[in-house]
Design a protein around this nucleic acid. Structure first.
Lengths: 144, 144
DNA sequence: ATTCACTGTGCAATCATTCCAAAATCAAGA
DNA sequence: TCTTGATTTTGGAATGATTGCACAGTGAAT
């Protein structure tokens, strides 16, 4: 879980996923690795645009979507109708504080009660969802 | 799990949650009970506006948000940056088909593998999240 | 130098949702 | 029945995140 990497290591991560390592893509990846705060596209843009004044918002959106489609990051849609990105793609849960808005990582699986005890967070609501191809659509795709 | 109720029963459901039973609110509740398809606000609006031509989109949005705040419905934000509402507030999971877009209810808890076997759905991705007040904010609210 | 494919830009458009001020409705009391 | 005040509803404008699109830039190989 290191928070800074060499340029070569960053390049390797992109190439491994079939993503060409352009300057902007490396910078955005570096930011995600260094800031495990589940940032939104806007937050990434705000953080990098002072360092890279020519950076376009659209580039940030495109890049994060590309990372997601290539499986390099997770995309979280917990609430507020905004997408947050997580460089940690291993199975784990998330906890969003309704007071301060911070998003925490949680071990998984554990019962909500255990988690509450363990972390000291007060859990008011939880939700689990799955994405995939449903039975009906599968049978249409390859009819017996 | 009945799909139609008398007017009195619908009124009772609203009053029980501290919601005044206006005509529009009853109609929207009736729709949610009769259509367990996790509809969006837009879908509810489209379905009811032919029957109630004066219905405003804002009323549907306000009403669904009120129902959610009063704990009468669940709010799902699985993807697509849209909120879906579920009249079933008991603990259960959801499965969204990436092909047809339908949202299925799933028993909970079960391991993803078990669920896949059981239902015939192909699960490509799953996510679990919690909402509440985090440890840090709690200690600020009532300092020892 | 030219070409070609890929990457990045910036503004317009889209889409769901919320804001807001005015209009409608309703209940209770005079 | 009329008045008053609170609540509900309306509809158009505003907001905020995201995407579309057409053009510009870049860089490697010819």
């Amino acid at each position: 879980m290191q928070t800074s990497m060499t340029l070569e290591e960053l390049k390797g991560m992109l190439i491994e996923k079939g993503i060409q390592p352009s300057f902007h893509r490396l910078k955005i990846l570096e930011y995600l690795i260094g800031h495990r705060t589940h940032p939104t596209a806007e937050e990434v843009y705000q953080a990098l645009s002072s360092e890279i004044p020519t950076l376009s918002r659209t580039t940030v959106y495109n890049t994060l979507k590309l990372f997601y489609q290539k499986g390099l990051v997770l995309a979280l849609t917990i609430e507020d109708l905004e997408i947050r990105y997580d460089i940690d793609v291993s199975p784990h849960g998330h906890f969003k504080c309704l007071e301060c808005g911070k998003v925490y990582d949680l071990p998984f699986p554990l019962s909500p009660a255990q988690r509450s005890e363990l972390e000291g967070h007060q859990i008011l609501e939880y939700h689990i969802y799955f994405r995939g191809i449903c039975r009906e659509c599968r049978s249409k795709q390859h009819p017996a």
